[in-house]
Amino acid sequence: MVAKKKEHELIVSVSPHVKSDVTTSGIMWTVNIALLPAFIFSVYFFGPRALIVTSLCIVTALLSEWGFQKFTDKDTTITDGSAVLTGLLLGLNLPATVPFYIPVIGTISAIVITKQLFGGLGYNIFNPALIGRAFVLITWPRAMTTWMKPDAAFTSFDAVSAATPLGILKEEGLAKLLVEFGDKVNLYTELFLGHRAGSLGETSVLALLIGACYLLYKRYITWHIPLSFIGTVAVIAWIFGGEGWFNGDPLIHILSGGLILGAFFMATDYVTAPSVRKGQIVFGVGCGLITMLIRLKGGYPEGVMFAILLMNCFTPMIDRNMRSSVFGARKQVKEEAK
């Protein structure tokens, strides 16, 4: 024993020698905690169905990750929090009224096809939760775009269906939206608090911002992707969103839909977003452009999901081409070129 210990002490390892105690699973669980306010608000707004849908997603995520890793003789990693995070994010991205097989199948496609078949955590090209949502949205478009009013939740399971603010904006225009919500100030307040139809976790901007601030404070995410994403959406909404040019209302576009949820919690995914700061800004701007293209010109009222997925494809390219140069290296290259 003693000899062994001595040997151990003499091992010379390569740098880095100073390690921080931040681990992948620590980050994952922190993000889970940061999503808790949004989850609590969703249960408050949409009632027990929200709880059931989200728990179904989480349980299926854990089971399918465990099952696949058992099946392929890999170490099970269900305690690292990433499967829980995928399940939770997917759950918060579904409408409250979905039939219960949708969360299950969506989660299986997220965990098994998008994450495990590509090699597990760290190797997936696309954000698993978003692929899961895209899969069920394309598969059952009717069920996935039937939204319910937040109020009726506690009294009965029979929900009152309603259109999302973005849906109304797309189909019937701003005037109808103002009729629905009263005046503009009231509209902004309702959107900010989350008192509107939509996916479970995307409605309450307040709850999402609480979680996002916690992540920013812990420095697990930086401002680059969310700010450039939301900023681009705001600018485009201002220029092209209204009647004529430079007449749009950026606040409506920022506060409605899944923009806040997507920008802070899904576009910032470590695995599928660029890791270079400059590249993160390019990534955010790209997400914003595609989002607004779909919202204003596309067939769907909401485009955050497809925008992030499309930009995920570009992540390797962005990372390769925007690598920051080593200090002094550029000068050397220039001199060699001479």
Binding site: I105, F135, I138, T139, W140, P141, A143
Partner: peptide, 11 residues
């Protein structure tokens, strides 16, 4: 049952 529409689309 409700079919999974995605399987008859290119994706």
């Amino acid at each position: 049952a409700k079919p999974m529409l995605i399987f008859i689309l290119p994706a």
